Simulated scan of single mutants.
Amino acid sequence: MNKPAPIVAELGRPETPEETAARKAESSTAYRSSQNVRSLVAALIVTLAVVAIIVFAVPRGEPASAPKVDIAGIAADVESTMKRPVILPDTGTFWRVNAAELTSGSTVVWDVTLAPKGDEERGYIKIAQAFDAESSWAPQRLNGTAPTDTTTIGGVEWDVYRVGDAGAKQNITYAIGTQAGSDYVLLYGSRSADSTAELAESLIPQIHALSEAS
């Protein structure tokens, strides 16, 4: 004999087969939902654990420094190619060489880019030795800027270029240049006039040597 269906308190009567099926379906849905939430939480915990392992396991250290430019070696090759001496700045403890290369074109140029070593210093100065050139070449590097004045550094007269807005895109604010024999030596960049003059003074012996070699 079939056992009578139990009375459901909320209904005050036995459940109908349809109500029983609906209740079981709802219970099953709630169970699956809770399982999905648990799975998501577990996956998140695993992901965070993996990230933590990567963060703490990867060795820490200083960023790799830029490769050192062998300016002496490059300069020797350029001198051999051009059959004449080139400007070789003494970097000392203040400057580092960012680039040194021979630039070809209508005028061949020995280009050296210097920047301060210390993090507290900013800017750069480029030394450009234009072979078989005169001051009329310089505006090509200075967006058409012509010299506005002259200054004497180490007994040598230098043309002064106040680039201003013309050099904004290349971050060029100041430049000086002088004739060194058959070559024109231009110093330009974003350092101050005093900093540029200090570098220029260190090059005076080489400027004289270039003049005497021509």
Rank of each mutant, 00 (worst) to 15 (best):
V58Y: 02
K24Q: 13
T20Q: 13
T20A: 13
S28K: 14
G61E: 06
Q35P: 07
R38C: 04
A49W: 02
N36Q: 15
L40H: 08
R32Y: 04
Y31A: 15
P59Q: 02
A49P: 01
V50Y: 05
L48R: 01
R32T: 06
P59T: 01
A42L: 14
A43G: 11
A22Q: 12
L48Q: 01
E26A: 15
K24Y: 03
Y31N: 12
T29N: 11
V37K: 14
V50R: 01
I54E: 02
L40G: 15
A52T: 03
V50T: 02
V55F: 01
R23T: 06
N36M: 15
F56E: 02
V55G: 01
E19P: 03
A43L: 15
Q35L: 15
A42T: 05
R23D: 04
S34P: 00
R32L: 10
F56P: 00
K24N: 13
R23H: 10
A42H: 02
A25R: 11
A52V: 01
I45T: 09
E19C: 13
V46G: 03
K24I: 07
A49E: 06
A57R: 10
E26V: 05
A42S: 12
L48M: 13
S34C: 12
G61I: 06
V37H: 00
A42V: 06
A25H: 09
V37W: 05
A30P: 00
E26Y: 07
I45D: 03
S39Y: 08
I54A: 08
S33T: 08
V51A: 14
R32H: 10
E19M: 12
A30W: 02
V51M: 12
I53W: 02
N36G: 13
I54G: 03
V50L: 05
N36V: 11
A43E: 06
L40I: 13
A42N: 09
T29W: 10
L44S: 11
P59M: 03
V46F: 05
L40S: 11
T47N: 06
R60W: 01
V58R: 00
K24C: 09
L44T: 05
S33L: 14
R32N: 12
T29P: 00
I45V: 15
V51I: 12
R32G: 03
V51D: 04
P59G: 08
V55T: 03
V41F: 07
E26F: 06
F56V: 09
S27M: 11
L48D: 01
A22G: 00
T29H: 12
A49G: 15
E19T: 06
A30F: 06
V50S: 04
I54T: 01
A52I: 00
T47A: 14
T20F: 05
S33A: 14
S28N: 12
V50C: 05
R60L: 11
K24L: 15
V41E: 02
I54P: 03
I54H: 06
V58S: 13
S39L: 15
P59E: 01
A49V: 04
F56S: 13
Q35I: 14
L44E: 01
E19A: 10
A52E: 03
S33N: 12
S34G: 12
P59F: 04
K24A: 15
V37D: 04
R23G: 10
A25C: 08
T47P: 00
V37Y: 07
A43V: 08
L40V: 11
S34F: 10
V55H: 03
A52C: 12
